[in-house]
Simulated scan of single mutants.
Amino acid sequence: MALEAFTPSKALTLGVELELQLVNTHDYDLAPYAENMLRLMRAHKLPGSVVPEMTSSMIEISTGICQDAGQVLDELSTIRDALVRSADKLNIAVAGGGTHPFQVWHEQRIYDRPRFRELSALYGYLTKQFTIFGQHVHIGCPDADAALLMLHRMSRYIPHFIALSASSPYVQGQDTQFDSARLNSVAAFPLAGRAPFHLDWADFEKFFAKMARTGVVGDMKDFYWDIRPKPSFGTIEIRVFDTPLTIERAAALAGYVQALGAWFLAEQPFMPDEDDYLVYSTNRFHACRFGLDGNYVDPGSGDHMPLRDHILLTLHRIGRHAQGPGGEAALHLLRASVAEGMNDAHWLRRCQQQEQLLAETTRQATRLFRGAR
């Protein structure tokens, strides 16, 4: 099977997908209401889409093609408001967060869709343990080679994306001591991790053809890479973000990706190299484990520094490349939270320390998602 052709798209356009939790309003455990929510959401005219996910306590929302973070926020706000109204009718609630704090994986139900049934047959219990929630950010690329160059440049900033979005400290009722425990579940899949180092699309096509001949993959969806090309969209898709607790932070993360991309195009700050990946796994682990308090090894210089400092330095470098007022607001939101040492994992832990009950922490997360302060 040949790799589908890369469809060019406008450089730096954005698309955002969010996987969201459906919880009951009795004890705030996950609730298998995806089918009911999808039925109610069909009555709303939306700028993007709402679709099922692997298990029936999850749904995925997505924007259309957006020009900047401001448009991402507008579209997510419209979808969020419709979700909240629909959830209220069902007496359930919607929450962000990369994991549900206390759900029990074996109680989850696989959503009845052919691909999900196939994955369940292949991966067994891992499929139900994949009841985790991520944000995917697509960024437009004008051609296939540009997409690979953008992919490998973005790979240096994977620790940034993880630490800024981290919102999964709790799993099965326990504090994992990770800011982003969600990515440990992703790592269990055999085709997870980093993309192979190719900067020429013809070489990437040869790689894909070899993989296809093994029968292991049929299309790009079979790769669970941290970043992967999406040829039919003309994008690269960054997949390491936990779903944030608010749509404002989700839009800000998309604005950060866009500003980074604009910086790459305008200034060509570095050329990626295979040796960049010598420190990739270590940087990724530190971001998952410690979040903003982790360490970062610069792949180019070899310098070691606190990850928080590297993020702040990068925000300073790319500030003038923010796209529009929405992009500037996105960087400001992230800069303020990093300076304070706060991400959503810290918020959840602080809330749990105060409440001493994960159900109440989850309830407050649902209020945060719907826009309550």
Rank of each mutant, 00 (worst) to 15 (best):
I110N: 00
G193E: 08
A69H: 00
Y157L: 14
V94P: 00
I158C: 02
K10R: 14
A259F: 04
E17W: 01
E237I: 06
I318M: 03
L292D: 00
H286V: 10
D203C: 04
K10G: 12
L73F: 01
I236A: 10
H332D: 14
F102W: 13
L315P: 01
V338M: 00
P101D: 08
H152V: 09
A121G: 12
T127G: 02
S337R: 08
D200K: 11
S155W: 04
R367L: 14
T246K: 09
L368M: 14
Q71V: 00
E17M: 06
D200V: 12
V137C: 05
T25L: 09
H136N: 05
K128W: 02
F197C: 05
Y125H: 13
M58N: 05
T314F: 08
F130A: 14
G371V: 06
M271H: 14
T314D: 07
Y111I: 05
P231M: 01
F369R: 03
D275K: 15
R80S: 08
G97T: 10
L183P: 01
H106F: 12
P114L: 11
E19S: 02
L83Y: 05
L199G: 05
Y296E: 10
G324P: 13
F161C: 00
Y280L: 08
G134N: 09
Q323E: 15
T361V: 07
G70I: 00
Q129F: 03
F207A: 04
R113K: 15
